[in-house]
Write a protein that binds this DNA or RNA. Structure first.
Lengths: 153, 153
DNA sequence: CCCATTAGTTGTACGAGTGAAACATTTTCA
DNA sequence: TGAAAATGTTTCACTCGTACAACTAATGGG
């Protein structure tokens, strides 16, 4: 017995399922119920969240309208509207696609990059309880989260 | 040295901050980008997410309109609309308040409880990567998440 | 008792976001 | 070349959710 399992208290399948469910439920509660900062970001940048999302994608790399629409999982017409608004604010700029003249490339301006950065700072700031974890726990959490992200990618 | 700190590699303040930021960012990405099941729930129950939320609260315990409005962080008029819709579907029922005749108590019907349960099952089902964690990691994750939830409560 | 307050409802107005139709321009491919 | 498809835009209709005003009924304090 105790085959290839790593060092840990033995778990029955039921116990294990309970741990999985409780842990995931807790994670969801943390992100969605306790420390959802989306509203704060929208207030801070004075724009709807889909615009913030668009700006964050565009600050990372220029995208065509089509690509942006796909990432926002919305349709082309609404993307036109959102980009038009961001452009009017001077946060993004449309330019011609080098090889396909149907396409347009949307790029974040320096102001746009700065705004996206402000949004990221608010969204990614760890909440209080994370700051209060001890060194071992924060290291373990980081490692496990990386594993969760990695296996799905 | 190695004063009272629990067993773990030593971290400089900068390293620690980086761990905190990366871990929290990853957690947000998991919940919001990769495994957001809200749409799935809305499709499955054929109702908007605020109605699902209302139903889940009411399945837990009966609430007055006012209390429900507070939990949904919406206003009284919209709560009337949402509860009216749930009532028309036979998922909740309004009844008189025992002592305050202005108030109404909203209770989930058996059908409502069942629907809320279906929603919970979808929302709380741990995503693939969580299922693939080894015993030690899932136990550690559960413990740390509990700590994160506990210190903020 | 009278008046301010509270609970719930009705109605209206508005912004955000989704979806579809129609269109011009450009590209691709048979 | 000519038809089909892709890109982006404009317009319209619709749902969802928020916000506000006005109203009824009931409560509670002076």
């Amino acid at each position: 017995m105790n085959g290839g399992a790593p060092a840990a208290r033995r778990q029955t399948p039921d116990q294990r399922a309970a741990l999985e469910a409780r842990a995931w439920r807790g994670i969801r509660a943390l992100v969605l119920d306790r420390y959802d900062r989306r509203k704060e970001v929208c207030d801070s940048l004075d724009m709807s969240f889909i615009r913030v999302k668009a700006l964050r994608y565009l600050a990372e790399e220029p995208l065509t309208m089509r690509e942006l629409a796909a990432r926002l999982s919305t349709d082309a017409p609404y993307t036109t509207l959102v980009v038009g608004d961001l452009e009017r604010r001077g946060l993004v700029a449309r330019s011609a696609h080098p090889t396909d003249r149907r396409s347009k490339i949307v790029t974040a301006t320096p102001d746009g990059v700065a705004a996206a950065r402000r949004a990221e700072d608010i969204l990614n700031e760890p909440p209080e309880p994370v700051l209060q974890l001890d060194s071992a726990d924060i290291a373990a959490l980081d490692r496990i989260v990386a594993r969760l992200l990695g296996s799905g990618d």
